[in-house]
């Protein structure tokens, strides 16, 4: 464990908690893409099946349980409890265009042709594009609530910190996982546009609105 991975995990945890609390306290999921949240639930489910097969540490196991629990709770709040506030018209990204190619790629390019490894690879590839429905929805509505931008910032920062963690681990441990690194770079690049808007607008107290 190094400081970058720790802060990456804490940023990821913050994002998940911010979103869950925002929906719970405002009793509304307006502006939130339910499709992205379903993709994240799939990412955690397919990645953390090793909860059943191996124990790495209390930290590792508890964080995985929290991620899985919160992501399913968030999906439940969006599609069940507060479904009346779900903006289905703007959450129109065709996720099948993500899942099918990602699934195919996971079968073709992986470290080991075993079920757990292919599911892990699928979750790594899927996570790198899972935020697209959310970013697409913001581009369609032309704006985002400030709390949603904080959620997105933490979500994007987490994998950016992981990139630094992988540089650290390569330098000090000789460890590197090309699949995770390439997917992590793609994932972080997808946030660059948002990062620019967040820093130039939200951090200056303005609302995040895209030029319609």
């Amino acid at each position: 464990m190094n400081i970058f991975r720790l802060f990456g995990d804490l940023s990821h945890l913050a994002a998940i908690i911010i979103l869950l609390l925002k929906i719970w306290k405002s009793r509304s999921c307006a502006g939130i893409s339910g499709k992205s949240q379903i993709l994240f639930a799939i990412v955690f489910t397919t990645r953390y099946l090793d909860l059943l097969t191996s124990f790495i540490s209390l930290y590792n196991t508890s964080m995985k349980m929290i991620y899985i629990g919160c992501s399913y709770a968030t999906v439940y709040l969006i599609y069940a409890k507060f479904r009346a506030t779900y903006d289905g018209n703007h959450d129109s990204f065709r996720v099948e265009f993500l899942i099918v190619p990602v699934g195919g790629l996971a079968v073709l390019i992986n470290h080991d042709f075993s079920l757990l490894e292919i599911l892990w690879t699928f979750s790594i590839y899927l996570e790198s594009v899972a935020i697209l429905p959310q970013l697409f929805m913001i581009s369609k509505t032309g704006e985002a609530e400030t709390i949603t931008t904080h959620y997105l910032f933490c979500q994007g920062l987490y994998r950016a910190l992981y990139l630094i963690n992988w540089i650290w681990r390569f330098y000090f441990e000789g460890f590197f996982d090309m699949i995770a690194i390439v997917a992590g770079v793609v994932q972080t690049i997808l946030y660059c546009d948002f990062f620019y808007l967040y820093v130039t607008k939200v951090l200056k107290g303005k609302k995040l609105s895209l030029p319609a």
Binding site: I56, H111, D112, D177
Partner: peptide, 10 residues
């Protein structure tokens, strides 16, 4: 056959 790398990251 490459050993599936131990997954210690989240």
């Amino acid at each position: 056959k490459k050993e599936a790398a131990m997954k210690d990251e989240l």
